[in-house]
Design a protein around this nucleic acid. Sequence first.
DNA 1: AGACCCCATTAT
DNA 2: TAATGGGGTCTT
Length: 825
Amino acid sequence: MLKQSNRSISVSFAQIILPLNLTGTFTYKVPEELQGKIEVGMRVLVSFGGKKIYTGIVAELHDRAPDTFAPKEIINILDDFPILPKEQIDFWNWLSDYYFCNIGEIYRFSFPGSLKLESETYLKLKPHAVIDFQNLDVNEMYLIQALEVRQLISLSEIEAFIPKKEIVKTINSLIDLQYIEIDEKIAEKYKAKEIAFLKINNEKSVLNNLPEILLKLKRSPKQQELFLLILGKQTENPEQQIRKSDIFEEGDFAHSQLKSLMDKGLIEEYYLQKDRLESYEGETEGIEELTDAQKQAKTEIDAAFNEEKNVLLHGVTSSGKTHIYLEKIEETINSGKNVLFLLPEISLTKQITKRLERKYGKQLGFYHQKLTDFERVEVWRRIRKNEIKILIGTRIALFLPFQNLGLIVVDEEHDSAYKPREVSPYFNAKDAALVLANFYNAKVILGSATPSVESYWLAKTDKLKYVQLNERFGKVKLPEFELVDFKEAQDTKNVNGNFSVKTLEQIRTVVDEKKQVIVLHNRRGYANVVECESCGYVAYCSNCDVVMTYHKFSNELKCHYCGHKAAKPKTCPKCFSENLNTRGVGVEQIHEEVSRIFPESEVDRMDVDSMRKKFAYEKLYEKIESGETDIIVGTQMISKGLDFDHIELVTIPRADQMLYVQDFRAEERAYQLITQVSGRAGRVSGKGKIMIQTFNPHHSVFQLIKENEVEKIYQYFLDERKKFHYPPYTRTILIELKHRKEDKVDRASKFLSSILRKYLPQECVLGPEKSPIGKINLLYQYQILLKFPRGKNYTSYKNFVTKSLQEFEDVAAYRSIKKLIFVDF
DNA sequence: AGACCCCATTAT
DNA sequence: TAATGGGGTCTT
């Protein structure tokens, strides 16, 4: 009876999300036999375009027949249960809507590749199918015959003997006839990782006949040695499995020797499946008790959560934000819910991971961009099966199929790695986390020592609960700031290269005490520009409108935008003068200088270029931890994750250059970078010192940092933002148009902005103008900036933007123009 | 994204 | 005159 009534809800059509960068979802017909089984969130196989078969996701089931086209049928369902929870589908829809990106793009970005089978899907004969060859056409016959010979055939292999156009028709017809089926097990590209182990075959009889066996092996001493090694291991510790790879690592054996032993029936090889994800196996331990200040903060968080409010936890460096996270994580887990812990980059997870590992062992999972696809599938499955209680991951972890999410922690919420501009879809993981949590009815803690101005504003306007922690753990003193007037130092000739004598003396003092020094210089390479002194020639990138940066270490010129490399010219390519000079100081040069001034000290460099080699980061990390390194010279990289006990001085030789970037967030970033890197100093001793060299010691940002009055600093930023109509007082959308032909983008951008002006208030549309970097990778770029007042109208403004973009799209001539849309950037 | 069609440029 | 390739269109 129940089944009957269920069936009366007609679900003859489905909206399918395809892994393609196309607008919207696609309508397919649900065939009769799938009608009881299909559910939203399941994966399905559908054919799209010519012959291609894709894995789509059911976004919606309905019975509204389309009237402008005849929908194709869904070929098959791939899951018994929805692989994607409802909350995730809501989340995808929100992202697509809010960030003007196609839902298929989100699907492609967020789903492990091997869960999206394409034309490599395999077909097989249905067992016990009785085939009536009389009624088959030629293609169907071919396919059946091929399957009788080969058992399994992939879709792409079928192309060899069936015309492309006929493939889908043939398969569909044979599936209809119940002759063939899609082999799901094989179709899943994912395979569990297997590890080879060895054991003595029939240990009892071997031990009984040992003398004989050894005699037999007498003429092959290597085999005997190998045999005895394995036998020894097995009898010594029968519980311990013997890994094949360990044996070959321990002794100098050849695989042929093992094979002979196996052929003689003495040794047996067997395989065990292994999780790719290494889990911590050691003991788990409890959390240390909170300090009074931390307890107070935690109480405030509890209160906020009770009022259904999310939290901005603003805690100075070393105040023990992690302690508080751990408490809340513990509570969430105890209440039966799961936790997502977001970090800007996975490489900085050392400390938090160690602490969580010790406590939660196997219930902890990791998920980030650096995992292989198979590793991703493993984590995906474990989350799906609710086996992971805490997941530590980067922004991509937002897309895992959480079952019962109770808390999301966004650590270092200000970090720009949460909104990279390089990869689409262009979403801000911090904002997305708030929305995702809402769908799951979960709570969020945004944590940072230097919150973004936007988050601070949300907290101050009561949209987030503001919780502060302003003393360092153990009441350790905050570092002392000193602004060094570099102009004055120059005038009084108290300068050695890029350093004032005063700064150098301080470095000397700290190094002599066997403490460590950080030198921050946030510019890659050796020099910005290579310039000809005679004719003024400057080396430009051949693909971009930027000068090439000189890297002395690799002796080449690099373009930091497209990656183009060129040899450093010995003479000027224009006038052949040998008078080539460099201008602009990069971190390599600072490193060289510091090494020269402190020849007996160990000076190391830390930037993306020197950390490119595998384990370079880990090696340097250890070197610093062990105290071998005296002075670390690096780019912004050093402001993250280097929590060492013996750093007592941080110097920034050319602090001004951080402020002179054409970006309304430049000052905010400078503040964050300086504060973050300062937090590395004096974490234990409380004797940290920061020396900032500047030509403008009276600049507001430096003065405010020195004063260290948080409220004043943020008020300053907010005032500036308000004055120039920037976020959080407005919402911005940046539209970037790119094309190889400059005149075409120029015209297109003018056209698009004229459409936008038609619908939107004039003051909301700025531009078009040539982007600050006019050409990257041979593409000319123009931009239009939209600024909208916050408030209810935003949605209607956004709808007009969508409408304008559609009108723009309608012009055939402009369809080849690349459009990038950045919301809230 | 990928298949297909149309048309222009180019080798033969 | 055939061949190659770029650009544009369409896919449910």
